[in-house]
Every structure is written in structure tokens, then in C-alpha cells.
Amino acid sequence: MNLLTADQITLITGGLGFLITVALLSYLIGDNLLYRIAIHLFVGVAAGYAVLVVIYQVLRPRLIEPLLSGNPETIAVASVPLMLLLFLVLKLSPRTSAIGNISIAYLIGVGTAVAVGGAITGTLLPQVQATGQLLGPGEGQLLNNIIILLGTVATLLFFQYWLRKRAPSGEIKRSPIMRAVVAVGQTFLTITLGTIYGGLILSGIAILGEQVASLYHWINALIG
């Protein structure tokens, strides 16, 4: 038995959405109570939702059920994360916090290894290989490949801090060629950053337009 119809729910949720949106937009005139209420509400709801997700999607299917399965092997395997979890809980007390370092060490160690390995094999080597392939023959891609290669090399040379020579006064000394290359790299960086910033604006405009359209439609629905 539904207490509310779909339209009523849509109206209520739309109204809450409208109020929260106005509250968040009120930050344009400064920090105020409505903005803080909206922020805290958003954070609280997100945290509560995250807890429910973790309980229903992580702890119960991956820890509690295996421990209650009666399978020793499954229990043994499931007890490992349980033990690490208890170690982390011991971090709450200063006396036993040292034990929690085991879990922290495990997380950091595994996370670092995964990130470094993935970066090397998934980004660095493929990107270097792809950049080298740009020098190969291609139809209509020569100019594009030259631009990509030049932009990549020039940008990397711009960030070469260890080859800079400094005068006694501290000023960086560069040869004229290096100055030109660095200038090219600086140009590419500027274009890239401008592009990113432009895409950010576009994303913002899209979000704002969609939100304004939803508000408009809600108001139309409310007015009837």
C-alpha cells in the first residue's frame, strides 16, 4: 500500500530539490545558514547511503555470510579481512593503535603496488609507445603527429628542472634553442589548460541548464 502516489512523490522530491538548490545557490551572496543546512544534509544523506551500501553490498555478502557459511575454508579466508578490520578498530585507542598499523601497512602496501604497477603498465609504457608510433607513416596524420610529438617533447622539456643552470644571482640560464622549445611547451600547456577550463565551463553550463530546466518543470507542475 502506497501512501503517496507517484505524482505526489515527484512533487515532494521536486520541492525538496528546489529548496536545496536555492539553498546551495544562496552561497553566491555569502556563507549563510541555508547553504550550511544544504551541505550538511547532502553530506549526511551521502554518508548514510554509503553506510547502507557498505552493509548490504560489502559486509553482509562478503564477510558475514562467509563466516556463517560453515565452510572452514571460507571462514578462514573471511577471517583475514575480519582480523584486519579489528586491527583498524584498535586504532581508536592510543594504547592499541600500533596494532592497527598492520592493516594500514597492508592497505598502503597493496594500494601502492597496484597503483604503481598500473601506472607503469597502463599509462607510461603505452603512452610512450603511442608517441613513438606517431613518427611512423600515416595518411593525413603527419601534421597531427608532428604537433603531438612537438607538444609532448616541448612540454616535457619545460618541466626539466634538473638541467637548468643558474647564474650566481639565481637566474636560470638557458640557451636560445631551449628557450624556444620551452616557449613551445609553455604554449601547449596553456592550450591544454584552456581546453580543460573550457570543458569545465561547458560541463557547468550543462549542469546548470539541466537544473534550471528541472526547476522550471517542477514549478510548472506545481502551478499546474
Partner: peptide
Amino acid sequence: VSATLAPLAAPYWDSKQ
């Protein structure tokens, strides 16, 4: 990806990843 991420995702596209 979003328009913001387009410049950063382009290299993976160019590298055929």
C-alpha cells in the same frame, strides 16, 4: 567522459587504449 575530462582522455584514445 565529461567535457572537462575530454583533453585528458584524448591521449588514451590516441594510444588506442
